[in-house]
C-alpha cells in the first residue's frame, strides 16, 4: 500500500538520479566549466565544441544510462515476481543471448564468410549491430512466448528459457572459434556493454520505445501483486494466468531486447536492482516496487556510467565491469545494514 514514507523515498531517489545526471554531463575526459554547461543546457552557448560534446555525447549517454537502468530493473522485477525466484533477471529467458547470437552472426559471420571486417564500416556497422541484436533478441522472445503457451508450469518455462540461452551461446562460441581475431575482439567489446552507442539522432526512437514500454508495465501491477501469492491463489482471485504470463514476458522481453540491442548485454542491474529497491522500500506492493526499481535502476546505471568514465582511466571502462563491481558491494552493504537494524528491533 502506498504510504507517505514511500512517496518521500521515491522523491529522494528521483532527486538523486537528477543530481547524478547533472554530474554525469559535467564530468568527462574533456573538462568543461560549469558555466559553459549551464549555457549549453539553457540554449545560449557560443562554444561550439563544448556544446557538441554535451549535446551529442554526454546527454545521450546519461539519458541512455537512465533508461537502461530503469528498463532492466523493471524487466528483472517482472521476471523475479513471475517465476517467484530471486535469482531471475531480465535475461533469464535467453533474450540477451538471442541478441548476442544476432550480433555474433553479423560481426563474426560477415568477417569469415563475407570477408568484410564490420568494425571498419563505422556508423553503418553500428546500425547493423543494433539491428542484428534486436532481431536476435526478438526472435528468442517470440520463441519463448510460443513456448509459454505450450507448457503449463512456470518452472518448465524457466528451464526452457535457460536452455534457449545455452543453445544461443554455444552457436556464438562456434562462430567465435572460426573468426579472425579482430572480429572476435569487436564482438567481445560489444559484449562488455556501453551506454555510449546511442547517438543523439537515435535517442528519440530509443527513448520512446523504452518510455512507452515502462509506462505499459505499470498496467501489470495488479497481476504482479497477485502472482506473488502463487499461481493457485492468483487464479482463484480471478487472474488469467496464461494471459498474464504472456504479457509479463512480453513487457520484460521488449524492454530487455531494446536495451540489449542498443547497449549490449548489461549484466547485474536487472538482477540486483529489484533487491536493492525491496531492501530500501521494505514493501511488496508493485505499485511502489515498480517505480522504485526504475528510479534505483536509473541511479545505479548513472553511477556506473560515471565511474566508468572517471578521469584517470584511459578512455572509458566497459560498463559490465563496473556494474558488478559497484553493484555487488551495494547489495552486500544494504543486506548487512538491514540485518543490523533487524537485530536492534
Amino acid at each position: 500500500m502506498y504510504k507517505r514514507k514511500h512517496t518521500i523515498l521515491l522523491l529522494i531517489c528521483a532527486l538523486v538520479s537528477v543530481i547524478l545526471f547533472l554530474i554525469n554531463i559535467t564530468l568527462g575526459s574533456v573538462s568543461i566549466p560549469l558555466s559553459t554547461i549551464l549555457e549549453v543546457l539553457f540554449g545560449d552557448s557560443k562554444d561550439i565544441i563544448s556544446s557538441n560534446i554535451i549535446i551529442n555525447s554526454r546527454i545521450p549517454q546519461a539519458v541512455t544510462a537512465i533508461l537502461a537502468g530503469s528498463a532492466l530493473a523493471i524487466g528483472g522485477l517482472e521476471m523475479q515476481t513471475l517465476f517467484r525466484n530471486p535469482l531471475a533477471g531480465p535475461s533469464i529467458l535467453g533474450i540477451s543471448s538471442g541478441a548476442s547470437l544476432g550480433v555474433a552472426f553479423v560481426i563474426l559471420a560477415s568477417g569469415s564468410i563475407g570477408g568484410v571486417v564490420l568494425s571498419s564500416l563505422g556508423i553503418l556497422g553500428s546500425i547493423a549491430v543494433t539491428f542484428a541484436a534486436f532481431v536476435g533478441s526478438i526472435s528468442v522472445l517470440l520463441f519463448v512466448v510460443f513456448l509459454a503457451n505450450k507448457v503449463k508450469g512456470n518452472a518448465t518455462l524457466l528451464i526452457l528459457g535457460i536452455m534457449v540461452g545455452y543453445t544461443a551461446n554455444s552457436i556464438v562460441s562456434m562462430l567465435k572459434f572460426y573468426s579472425p581475431e579482430e572480429d572476435v575482439h569487436a564482438y567481445v567489446i560489444w559484449g562488455l556493454g556501453s551506454f555510449s552507442k546511442v547517438s543523439a539522432s537515435h535517442l528519440p526512437l530509443f527513448s520512446s520505445i523504452i518510455i512507452v514500454c515502462i509506462l505499459l508495465s505499470f498496467l501489470l501491477v495488479k497481476r504482479l501483486n497477485l502472482l506473488m501469492l502463487g499461481e493457485n491463489y492468483a487464479r482463484n482471485l480471478g487472474v488469467n494466468i496464461k494471459e498474464s504470463r504472456f504479457l509479463i514476458i512480453l513487457s520484460s522481453g521488449i524492454l530487455t531486447a531494446t536495451i540489449t540491442a542498443y547497449c549490449g548485454p548489461i549484466i547485474f542491474i536487472g538482477l540486483a536492482v529489484p533487491h536493492i529497491a525491496r531492501l530500501i522500500f521494505a514493501v511488496a506492493d508493485h505499485k511502489v516496487l515498480l517505480p522504485a526499481s526504475a528510479l534505483v535502476g536509473a541511479c545505479i546505471a548513472l553511477l556506473c556510467s560515471l565511474i566508468a568514465r572517471m578521469p584517470g582511466f584511459d578512455g572509458a571502462l566497459p560498463i559490465n565491469s563496473v556494474t558488478s563491481f559497484i553493484g555487488a558491494p551495494v547489495v552486500v552493504w544494504v543486506l548487512l545494514k538491514k540485518r543490523k537494524s533487524e537485530t536492534v528491533e
Partner: peptide
Amino acid sequence: SKLISVVLTDKINIQNI
C-alpha cells in the same frame, strides 16, 4: 473468483507485506 474463495496449503512466502 466471485463464487469460490480458497485457503490452500501453498506456502505464502512474500517478504515485507
